[in-house]
């Protein structure tokens, strides 16, 4: 058996779906955020695989931009979590964020 690009792409789709489900299922903000990272990684795998099948470097270059964006997002996201935690000194689950509703 030969590993075809389709295998990679199906795996990436599976990882993306797991990340998306985790985003909906989990209430812990930090873990939800990790699920976003899972989704971004699935996208990276897709980019690199297409880059190989299309014999085109753009896909690999795209991964760099995703990495920069992910790093910036992590910095801001974790700063937000720290700010919230400082203010409330309680848990970090999404249920604690409940003052807004309607």
């Amino acid at each position: 058996m030969i590993v075809t690009p389709t295998w990679y792409l199906v795996l990436a789709a599976a990882l993306f779906s797991i990340g998306a489900v985790g985003m909906l299922v989990r209430r812990n903000v930090i873990v939800m955020f990790m699920c976003v990272e899972l989704m971004l990684n699935a996208v990276n795998l897709t980019f690199v695989t297409f880059s190989k099948t299309l014999n085109d470097l753009s896909g690999q270059v795209a991964v760099f931009f995703v990495l920069v964006v992910a790093a910036a997002e992590v910095a801001i996201g974790l700063a937000l979590i720290v700010a919230i935690f400082r203010r409330r000194h309680t848990g970090t689950t999404a249920d604690d964020i409940s003052e807004l509703r309607g």
Binding site: A20, V36, M39, L40, A42, V43, T46, E73
Partner: peptide, 11 residues
């Protein structure tokens, strides 16, 4: 989350 979904669409 929305950015990740958009990015998958781009890929």
């Amino acid at each position: 989350f929305a950015s990740a979904v958009f990015l998958y669409g781009v890929a």
